[in-house]
Simulated scan of single mutants.
Amino acid sequence: MKVHRNIPLEPAREDSAIVVWRAAIDLFGGDRSAADRWLHHEAMGLGWKRPIDVMQDDPQQVLDLIGRIDHGVYT
């Protein structure tokens, strides 16, 4: 098997999704149900898109929103 050392490795999508899920659960004080509901409902800070959909293409955008919400900035 040939390894291509000059190609940058991107974090796996699954890893990014786990990071977002953990951040959402932390945001809701460990309440997995509340985090799941939030991830599956439209968010004003994401242009009324669902975080679960946005995190597929841009998990950092969802993490940024979680950070803003955690600091009291909702938009």
Rank of each mutant, 00 (worst) to 15 (best):
E42Y: 12
A34L: 14
R5W: 15
I25A: 00
Q60C: 10
D26W: 06
K49N: 12
I69S: 00
I52R: 04
A17M: 13
M1N: 10
D57G: 04
T75I: 10
L46P: 15
Y74N: 03
H71I: 09
I69T: 02
Q61D: 09
I66Y: 01
D15K: 08
L9Y: 15
V54A: 01
H71Q: 09
T75F: 12
E10G: 10
R32M: 13
E42L: 07
L27R: 02
E10I: 13
K49G: 04
D31M: 07
D57E: 10
P59A: 00
E14N: 12
A34I: 14
V62T: 02
V62H: 03
D26G: 00
A17R: 11
I52Q: 09
M55A: 00
D53M: 05
I66G: 01
S33N: 11
I69L: 02
Q56A: 05
W21N: 07
A17F: 14
A35H: 07
V54C: 04
A35L: 11
G47A: 03
V73E: 13
H71K: 05
W38V: 09
D57H: 05
T75S: 06
K49V: 09
P51H: 01
D70C: 05
L27I: 06
H71D: 12
D53I: 06
L46C: 11
S33P: 14
G29P: 13
V20D: 03
Q61Y: 08
E14Y: 15
I69F: 01
E42W: 11
D64L: 10
W48K: 06
A12L: 10
G30H: 06
V19L: 11
G72I: 01
D15W: 13
I18Q: 14
E14T: 14
Y74E: 03
D64W: 09
A43E: 07
H40S: 12
N6D: 15
G47L: 05
V19S: 08
H40Q: 11
V20M: 04
K2W: 14
V73C: 06
